[in-house]
Design a protein around this nucleic acid. Sequence first.
DNA 1: AATCCGGGGAC
DNA 2: GTCCCAGGATT
Length: 350
Amino acid sequence: MNQFVPQIHLWYNRNFRDLPWRNTHDPYKIWISEIILQQTRVEQGKNYYLNFINRFPSLKHLAGASENEVLKLWQGLGYYSRARNLHQTARFIQNELQGKFPETYEDIIRLKGIGPYTGAAIASIAFGLPYPAIDGNVYRVLSRYFGISTPIDSGKAKKEFRELASGLLPPKNPGFHNQALMEFGALQCTPKSPNCKNCPVADSCFAYSEKQVEELPVKEKRTKQRKRYFYYFYIDDGKFTWLEKRTGNDIWKNLYQFPLLESDKELTDSEIGNLKNIPFLNGHSATVNKISKPVKHILSHQVIFATLIHVEIPSIKSLTDNLIKVEKNSISDFPVPRLIEILIKNAGDF
DNA sequence: AATCCGGGGAC
DNA sequence: GTCCCAGGATT
C-alpha cells in the first residue's frame, strides 16, 4: 500500500503556513486569493490580498467599485487582466446570478478569469467538491514522485496529470488534500534544491531513487522576448500635466501613463529634440527641457527601453481627446504600471 | 498548439 | 543572466 497521500497529509499538518485565506470557506474570499496567487508567489500576493479584502469585504463591495479603483489596488502585481476580469465577474454574479456565487465546478469555470486550476481550487476548498487542483507545484511533485517525463506544458500532460491527480483525491476533504499537495511543492519539493534529505516520501520517490530530481519536471517551451522603445512625454503645464489611458490589446490595458510615442528603434537625443508632428500634441510645438536616461524594463515577453522627456508647451489650448489634464500631485490617484512608477520616482532627480 | 499577459525573488 | 511562481484568454 502506497503511503504517498497520507504522508503528504501528515507533512501538511506539521508544516502548513498560517495564511489569511486559510481560515475561511467564503467562496468570494477563496476566489480572490486564488486569482491573486495565479503565477504569483504567496509572499508577493499576501499583502495585496489583505488590502483587497479590507477594501472589498464582499462581492457586493467589489461589484460596486469602479474599474479604476480595482486596478489601483492591483497596481504593481502584474497580469492586470486578472483584476479586470475579477471586477467584471463580480458585477456579473451580482447582477445576473443574484449575488450568489456558483456552487458547481461546471458553473464556476464558466466565469471569466477562472480556468481548470482555479475552478478546482474554489470547488474543493469552498464547497468540498472532489476536483484536483493542479498548479505548477502539483505538476512538479507528481512528475518527480511518479517519474513522469511528459513535458508539463504540453496538452498531453494536462490529461495525464489530471487522471493521476484525480485518482489520488480522497473522498473526504479534497480542499485539504489539494492545499497539502501544493504546499508540499512550495516548501519541500521546490524547483531548485528540494529538501530530499528530510522528505517523508523520498523512499518511494522515483526521481530521488533514480537521481533525476534535477531533471524533472520537463518543460519544452522557451519564451522569446521582443524589444520596444518607449518615449514618454512629461508635459510641464504649470500645476498640471497630461496622462493617457492605455487601450487596445497590449500590455497594461486600462492603466494610465504619460503620453507615449513608441519607436521601432532607439532614438538619439538629437532626434528626440527634433521630433515634429507628434500626434498627441495636436499641432503644438514643444520645448524639450530634459531627457532622462533610458530605463530598461523587463517583462515576460518584452524588453522595454523607456525614456522620459520633460517638455514645455507655450500656451496649450487643447491636446488630443485621448489625453486628460490632471494635477501633478494627483497622478497617484491613477493606476499605473510599475514602469511609470519608476519613471516618476527617477524624475525626482531629473 | 503557440503566444501573450507583469512583476518579483531565488540562484 | 535563467527559472518560475496556488494560470487563463486568445488566436
